[in-house]
Every structure is written in C-alpha cells, then in structure tokens.
Amino acid sequence: MTINATTYAELQEIAARYPQERSGLLPMLHLVQSTEGRVTADGINACAEILGLTAAEVSGVATFYTMYKRKPVGEHHVGVCTNTLCAVMGGDQIFAELKEHLQVGNDETTTDGKVTLEHVECNAACDYAPVVMVNWEFFDNQTPESAKQLVDDLRAGKTVTASRGAKICSWREAERVLAGFDDGRADEGPSAGEASLAGLRTLDGDQ
C-alpha cells in the first residue's frame, strides 16, 4: 500500500505547522499509522522525503517510541496498565484474564482483527486503578469482569463510551487526532471523574 496523495499532502501540512519542519515527525508518524494501520516502509519513506531525511533516520525515531507499531494493529487497541500500582490493585489479574479470554499474548491481535492487547506503563490515572485504556481513552476502576465485557462489546461492534472521554472511535481514528486533525469530540464526556474531585468533595457541606 502506498501513501496516497491526500495523506501525502496532510503529512506536508503537519510539517508546515512548525518553525522547523522536522518537529512534525512524531505527529506525521501518527498520521501514517492512521492510514496504514502501522508504521510501514512506505510511510517512513514519505516522511523522509518530505523532511529531507534518510529512511534510516526516520526509522530510528519510529522504533524509539512505544506507540508506533511495526505489526498491524486491530480495530481497537486495548492497553492494560501493569505498572506497580495498577498491577497490585488488580491489573495483573485483568491482563492475565484478558489474555485467556481473547486467546492472545501480549502485543497480539485477536483472529477477528478486532482487538490488539498490550500491557502498558503508567497512564497517569493511578487514582482510578486498575486502569484499562482503549485507543488511549480511560476506562477507570476496572475488574476482570468489566474488562472482559468491554472487549466483548468492542468485538461485537457495540457502542462503548470511556469513563472520562468520548464514545470509542477506532484506533486509526484516534491516531488521526494525535496527528493533529480534530474530530470535534472534545465536548463529549464529563469534566472530571469522581476521584479527581475527591479533595473538593471534602468541602461539601462546609460553611
């Protein structure tokens, strides 16, 4: 699959946002993922051509960051936090049960292509532990049961809404937002979850 003219123009558009266009490389690689489903050789070559770099230089950047995938990602990316706090609070058990339930290992995709499962590092939602991310949206206070229901719903194509966020789009659509192309959904979801408001709640009823 080659990079089509529309995508190529959008890659150029990203580079042009910055005082020095190489700064656009990270969002450009996000855009490559959104159209190609992973970082492909064609995508690397297109970025290199636009930025005046070698393919090796772009590849060296792409392999450094964990969000860039060399294998095709499923329709949805499900990340289970197994850093210490989430792991202790149950993230390890959730990850183990999801592997069993989906019959996949870490960084593998279900046979129907719907879900890629990965364990992720701390996602800055420790007060909602254990946390599961779907296409980088928060699913707070998960249990093995809720996480299994979540992936079942994703595989069944049901509407799924993040705990603090929007209705779940696909992983590719999410990557397009990360590239800097808005999907107009900032107004979905709440201001904050309950834990974010815990300090404020202690003042309820105060004079």
Binding site: A166, V177, G180
Partner: peptide, 13 residues
Amino acid sequence: RGEVLHVIRRLRA
C-alpha cells in the same frame, strides 16, 4: 504524552 486522547482533544479545542 500521546496516550491521553481525550486530554489532547480538550487542549486543542
């Protein structure tokens, strides 16, 4: 960080 989609939406908006 890239792993916080909705936060990025809110910031950009």
